[in-house]
Amino acid sequence: MDYALLAATALGAIGLFLMLPRDRMPLVRLGMLLGGMAVIGFFLYLLRSVGESHLAAATGGGVPIPFYLFGFIMIAGAVGVVCQPKPVYAALYFVLITLAGAGMFVLLLAQFMAIVLIIIYAGAILVTYVFVIMLASQGSTGGQVTAPDYDRKASEPFFSVLIAFLLIGTTLQVLFPSDGKVIATPSGHPDQLMAMNIGEVAVPTTAPAADQYVSAAHPPTDIQVLGINLYSQYALSLELAGILLTIALVGAVVISRKGEPKTHILGSGTLPTE
């Protein structure tokens, strides 16, 4: 049992509870203060508990400021999404989470995934959300300026925060045991990131020699490693993902079209009448 961690978790829970939207919100600033203190205290705890690592050469040691910056932005953005009564602003906070998450991915040497995250999440999914939010809110507010009642009042805030922070608290207690024995981190040289796994996959002999692009002199980039992994080990899963996306596309069109009950589909059969 680590009491410092427990205190930070409880502080964060109280802060989030005070920040959740409700009828009268007299203590939002206090909640922001408590939540910010909890996150900063947690980061100080992380800073204190860090150990020696074989990967120390990767970032040159020192206080890794980008990690804490991106982590703080991600957590603050998540709290913003949860506590913002207006859905459009909440979607903008979610863009903040996505951008900080992409920064985290760059820190983890997954540059390609960072770009993919921005393109797919911020570029495609969030635009869909904002589109639907605007479509739905222009009718429901009907001229009234304030958000509707179900957006201004959180339902069951106490039990939700209790359950979620019990989950967070137990997870953190497992991640940071009080005896100081943290989960061992595998070691490896960062320049040859994941290159050791590339030799295990069978490269088709008909392909142009893979050694031409990947050798000890030219360590593979993350896109090469990911591509070989994706198209050899998970080729079938990739096909299934493509089929799933196609089905979802067709399904979304069928679900959301304005259905006259007697519309013919492909000239045969009719939609079931209600």
Binding site: L20, M74, V82, S155, L167, I168, T171
Partner: peptide
């Protein structure tokens, strides 16, 4: 884990 927990709070409290 913290992100997951905060998202869980939002999923349970928001009614939109």
């Amino acid at each position: 884990a913290i992100l997951f927990g905060i998202g869980l709070v939002g999923f349970m409290t928001r009614r939109n």
